[in-house]
Design a binder for these strands. Structure first.
Length: 692
DNA sequence: ATAGCATTAAACAAAT
DNA sequence: CATTTGTTTAATGCTA
């Protein structure tokens, strides 16, 4: 039933291939900085206050534009999530459902109708259709928004120049505005690129200039109360949206709409005029007249001889005819109102997305050790590698985190948002192909730093960490003060450190157990109080599995003699190990703990490290165990000679001749007091280990 | 095309 | 008897 794990890998790949993520992120990066630095510009005097205001306006314009881009990106990613391959194994019925879950706001009645009408189509086709529509709509919205903001910028620029402020300030403003304009230009280019990429991907088959899909359905799908709430948020929020986190209220539109005292504002035309019967009305005339009085050729809704009202695109010869058209076609009626609602929704979504991408950016910058401008943002994952199961598990394990969750900004909207991986992969260790997960072979085993850097993120976001189970288990063990954990403690570490592992316990717990058994590097040690696991980091680096098909506990066709025959040193080692079976010595433990630091020298020189020792003892015991286990339980303390001396049990394992050498003393119960064990066994709550 | 690895599921066993 | 802990195998998918 989990067979789709691999199939969704494809989706991940496609998401990455979309390639537009990079630009957006770069853009985001620049924009973020701008926004930050300007947003806190203090108003020194009257002129400065105006300046600050204007700057805010421009900031907002930038943000709006960014949001639009981001929204597009999100749409793309959502589309990427749904890989065609996955559908091969999924009942067609599920497709619309999944789509709806992922983008509930965009599922309009119309779209649903289409879905219903086109049952003959394959799920993939349905999805493509949906994506096309969404992309189209967004594209149009974006264009319109962009135009508006650009015009607003120009307006402000002119006004500033007319304001007759101190020359110095004026120059400053002009410079800044120039910079903003340049940025806007850049954004436009990015947008166009994005458009092209959309088209290339077949998401956008219709010319962007053509009328987009009607917007009314979207609005119709909304509940009046929701609209009211939305309106409230859009219009009344004076709160700074810089506090991204949970606050997703908009500032851009609000300030511009609401502050009638600022005549320079030209952005949005939406004014909360009346609210009757749960219906909102939009009033525009005043602002229009004002704006085009001063700038006859500049109107947010007018450009290139075309009415830019969403979904309109009517051709207007001149500005006057445009005004006529505006007043006649886009008067205060239900339709216009609905369109405004839609616009609000769009803005809301974009803001949400912006917040999320801000976090992502922050994480990226943090990871790259770039001084951040937003220290508060929560860290985000690196996702150096696109994990196959990442997308799958995320979508499957936390489906509810996909749709709504405006309140859970840490949870990625879609599991496919792996855009950063492109950047990080190249900037990180190897420039090689994106690896599915951390590869032990690359000398880049998972390090404490790797996990720690994103710790906060994974603690809160239900995103599957891009690390293998083995890496995580190792990390868990190494983080523990004694470098040893019981199975239950390992479980707890997982749930504590990763939100993702707070669900589907049966699955990942089973995986952990399997990994513990399967990987050579994990050594089970048993004492009279139970058993715990340690890690042999040298072995971990080797990344070897316990050989399959080799004699194992449940394989009857292998016996001790045979083992000894294959490993002449077995007996000797047993003896020596016996001699070394002393309580855990601190130095050894320390070196054990040090594992995070590769012990290349010892390894390369053939000197058995502690890990080797552990392996050796394991292997030796394996032989002995194999023999005695057949009849009785192997856990009764004191049964085996070794246990008699010291209650140490290790995982039985097929022998590896070349390693079964040298003395060894494995972790035992040196620092093990009964109460400690007890404590350990019942440590369910996130305790001290939470530190670090 | 193939081998090796990672993940997941499942069967089974032993211990608790 | 139910649950936990371990072991083992198989299937699947991905990467080198």
């Amino acid at each position: 039933m989990m067979q789709e794990s691999g199939t969704e890998t494809k989706s991940n790949g496609s998401a990455i291939q979309n390639g537009s993520g990079g630009s957006n992120h770069l853009l985001e990066c620049g924009g973020l900085r701008e926004g930050r630095s300007n947003g806190e510009t203090p108003a020194v005097d009257i002129g400065a206050a105006d300046l600050a205001h204007a700057q805010q306006q421009q900031q907002q314009a930038l943000q709006v534009a960014r949001q639009l881009l981001l929204q597009q990106q999100q749409q793309q990613q959502v589309s990427g999530l749904k890989s065609p391959k996955r559908n091969d194994k999924q009942p067609a019925l599920q497709v619309p459902v999944s789509v709806a879950m992922m983008t509930p706001q965009v599922i309009t009645p119309q779209q649903m109708q289409q879905i219903l009408q086109q049952q003959v189509l394959s799920p993939q086709q349905l999805q493509v259709l949906l994506q096309q529509q969404q992309a189209l709509m967004l594209q149009q919205q974006l264009q319109e928004f962009y135009k508006k903001q650009q015009e607003q910028l120009q307006l402000q620029l002119l006004q500033q120049q007319h304001a007759g402020k101190q020359p110095k300030e004026q120059q400053q403003v002009a410079t800044q505005q120039l910079a903003f304009q340049q940025q806007l230009l850049q954004m436009q280019q990015l947008q166009q690129q994005h458009l092209l990429s959309l088209q290339r991907q077949g998401l956008l088959t219709i010319q962007p200039g053509q009328p987009a899909l009607p917007l009314q359905p979207l609005a119709q799908g909304m509940i009046p109360t929701e609209l009211q709430q939305l309106w409230k948020e859009v219009t009344s929020a004076h709160t700074a949206e810089e506090t991204t986190g949970n606050n997703h209220s908009s500032l851009d539109l609000t300030t511009t709409c609401v502050s009638s005292s600022a005549p320079s504002k030209t952005s949005l035309i939406m004014n909360p005029h009346a609210s009757t019967n749960g219906q909102l009305s939009v009033h525009t005339p005043k602002r229009e007249s004002l704006s085009h009085e001063e700038h006859p050729h500049s109107h947010p809704l007018y450009g290139h001889g075309v009415c830019k009202w969403p979904g309109c695109e009517a051709v207007c010869e001149d500005f006057q005819s445009f005004l006529k058209h505006l007043n006649s076609e886009h008067a205060l009626d239900d339709r216009s109102t609905a369109q405004c609602r839609v616009q609000m929704q769009v803005v809301q979504q974009l803001e949400l997305q912006l917040a999320k991408d801000k976090e992502r950016l922050q994480a990226m910058m943090t990871h790259l050790h770039v001084k951040s401008t937003e220290p508060k943002a929560a860290p985000q994952p690196l996702n150096l590698v696109s994990s196959v199961t990442l997308s799958k598990s995320a979508s499957e394990a936390s489906p509810q985190s996909l749709p709504h969750t405006p309140t859970t900004p840490t949870a990625p909207l879609t599991p496919v948002t792996q855009g950063p991986s492109v950047i990080t992969t190249t900037s990180m260790h190897t420039v090689g192909p994106i690896r599915r997960r951390y590869s032990d072979k690359y000398n880049v085993p998972i390090s404490s730093a790797d996990i720690a850097q994103n710790q906060e993120f994974y603690k809160n976001a239900e995103v599957r960490p891009p690390f293998t189970y083995a890496s995580l288990i190792r990390q868990a063990i190494l983080e523990s003060p004694e470098k040893q954990l019981t199975l239950n403690e390992i479980y707890n570490w997982f749930t504590r450190m990763f939100a993702y592992f707070r669900r589907n316990a049966a699955t990942w717990k089973g995986a952990i157990r399997t990994n513990l058994s399967l990987h050579k590097c994990f050594i089970r040690v048993e004492d009279e109080f139970g058993s715990f696991w340690t890690v042999d980091d040298e072995e971990f680096k080797r990344g070897r599995h316990i050989q399959r098909g080799r004699p194992r506990k449940y394989c009857p066709d292998e016996n001790f003699d045979e083992l000894v025959a294959h490993n002449p040193s077995l007996i000797k080692n047993m003896q020596s190990s016996h001699a070394y079976c002393t309580p855990l010595n601190a130095a050894l433990q320390a070196s054990m703990a040090e594992n995070s630091i590769p012990l290349y020298t010892t390894a390369s020189m053939g000197n058995p490290t502690l890990g080797n020792l552990a392996s050796a003892i394991r292997e030796e015991l394996n032989g002995a165990m194999e023999h005695t286990n057949s009849n009785e339980s192997d856990s009764s303390p004191g049964r085996s000679p070794m246990q008699a001396v010291h209650p140490v049990h290790v995982k039985e394992e097929p022998l590896d001749p070349e390693e079964a050498e040298g003395p060894l003393s494995l972790v035992t119960t040196a620092n093990h007091s009964p109460d400690f064990d007890h404590d350990r066994d019942y440590e369910d709550e996130p305790v001290n280990e939470d530190m670090e």
